[in-house]
Design a protein around this nucleic acid. Sequence first.
DNA 1: GTAGGGTTAG
Length: 610
Amino acid sequence: MLWRFTWVKQRTKTINTLLCSSPFHTHLSPNPNKKTNFSQQRAPLKPLTHDDVYSRLKASPPDLKTLTFFFHCAKQSNYFHDQRAFHLMVTVVQSLTHQYKTIDRIIEGLRLSGCEIKPRVLLLLLEIFWRGHVYDKAIEVYRGMSSYGYVPNTRAMNMMMDVLFKSNLVDRALEVLEGIRVKKFFSFDIALSHLCGGKDVVRVKLVLKMMVREGFYPNSERFGQVLGVFCGRGCVVEGLQVVGLMICSGVSVSVNVWSMLVSGFFRSGEPEKAVGVFNKMVCCSPNIVTYTSLIKGFVDYGMVDEAFSVLSVLQSKGLAPDIVLVNVMIHTFTRLGRFEEARNVFISSLKNRNLVADEYTFSSILSSLCLSREFDLRVTIGTSLEMDLVMGNSLINYLCKVGNTAAALKVFRDMSNKDLALDCYTYTGFLIALCQGKAPRDAVIMYNRIIKMKNIRLDAHFHTVMINSLVELGEYSTAIRLFNRCVSEKHPLDVVSYTVAVKGLVRGRRLDEACSLLYKMKEDGVMPNGRTYRTIISGLCEEKDKDRVKKIVLECIEEGVELDPNTKFKVVCLLSRYGRDSSEFRSVFEKWCGNVDVSDSCEELYVSAG
DNA sequence: GTAGGGTTAG
C-alpha cells in the first residue's frame, strides 16, 4: 500500500460520528449514561475544535483508548492536531512504551482494541515520538512501517532523517534523504541545518548541489549558515559560489556575508582576495565587524601599518570600537611586544567606552602579562564572569607563572566541576601546577592517567612539559624513562621534546646518551635547532670534551643552524686552548666574530658577541 | 546557531 494514495482519501467522519462509532466512547463521553442517546445523534455534526480535543485528551488516562481517540480525531476532514495535543500524546506513548515494551506490541494492542492500523496511524505514532524526542522508538516505528507493507511518504522520511541526524547517524540520515522520491524544500533544509551544525563542509556541498539540481534554494537564514561553514573551514571559493547562488535566488547579500568572505579569505591564506572583496563590497558599507576582520587579517600577515590605518579609517568614520575590536587590539599589541599599550587598552579603553571585559579579554590580557613578565596587580579577574575553557586555561597558566600553584590547582578543580570539555592546555597547566607545587609524583600519576584518556588529543607540548618539569626538579632518570616511553609509544614529540630530553641527559651527566639522542632525533625526522645544539654543546664544553664539541659544531654549521653568542663564546674558549689542534676552526671563529682576531684572547669575542 | 575576537614549552 502506498501512503500517498491513502493521504488523499476523503475523510468524511466527524468527531460526533467518531464518538458514536468508537468502542471507546464510554470513557470519553462526559456522561456514560447518555451513551444510547449519544449514539443515536449522528447529526447535526459539530465541527471539531482544538480546545475541545485538548480538554478531552487531557482528561483521559494515558492508555490505548486515548491514543485511538487521538488517531480518530486526526482522521477528521480538515482537522490537524495542534502542538498541545501532540505534547499530551508524548506522555501517553511513553506510558504505553513502558507498559508494552515494543512498538509491535503497542500496535497489536491498538489492533485488538479495534483501531484499524492504517498508514496514518503509524505516521502519527512516528510524529509523536519525533516530537517527544524519543528517537529510538521513532526509528522502531519507521522500521515497522515496511513490515506492514507501507512505503513512507516524504513527511515520514523527513522526520526519520531528522531523527537519524539527531542520533548522530549522519550516513543513514543521508541514505534516507537520497531515498525520498519526491523531495521537498524541507527535506533539504533539514539536512543542511544538521550538516551546517556539524560543520560538515563536504556533505553540505553535496546536499546543496542536490537541492539546487531539484530546483530549490535555501532561505536567507540557511544561506548564511552554509556560507559560515564554508568560510569558517577555509573553503572560500565555494563560499563565493554560494554568494552567486544567493544573488540568483534573489536573497540580498548583506554586510554579514561580505564580512564572512573577508575573514574567510584571510583565514584561507589569501589576503589579497580578502582586500579585493572588501574593496568590491556593493549594496552596503563595511561595519565594525568587517573592519575588525580586516584589522585582524592584516596583523596576521604582518601588515601592521595597514592594520593601524584601517583603525584610523574606522575612527574617522565615527565607528566606536566594541569589545571584540578591543580584544583584537589587546592581542595585537601583545603580539607586537607592545605590552604597555595592551595594558592601557585593557585599563582605559574599556572604562572610557563603557565596555565590559569578557572571557576573550581576560585570556588575552593574562597572556600579555605572562609574556611581558610584568604581573600587574591592577588586572583583576571579574568574579561575575562565567569562566570558559580558554579563560580557565589562561588563568591556570598565569597563576603558575606568578608562583601561586595552589590557586592554579583550585582553578583546575573548579573547571573539572563545570561542564567544560577540558583540553590539552588544561591538563598541561595542571601538570605544571603539580610539579611547581612540589608534587612530581602526583604529576606522573596524573600524567599516566591522562594519556590513557581517549577523548583528549594530546600534543607534543603536553608531554614536553611533563618531561621538562621532571628535569627541572632534578628527576633526570624518571624524565628520560618517560621520554623513551613517549618515543616507543609514538606519542607526538617535537624538537622541543627532544631538546628537553637532551637537557635531562646533559644535566644527569649522561653525555654519551645525549650525543646518541642528537643522532637519533635526526633519524626520527626531527631536526635539531639552535637550542638543541646549545644544550648539548654547552654540556660538552663543561666536560671539556673538545673532540665531540668540534664534531658537533661542524655538523651544526653544516646544517646551517645559527648558534647563540654565549655558546659560541664557550666553544671559542675551549678550543682556543688547543690552538694548533683546532686550527681548522680559525675560519669558523672569524666568521662568528666578524673581523675580530680571536687567536689571542677570548675577551674580544665576548665583547663582539655580546 | 546568519558575520569579527582569546589560552601553552625548552
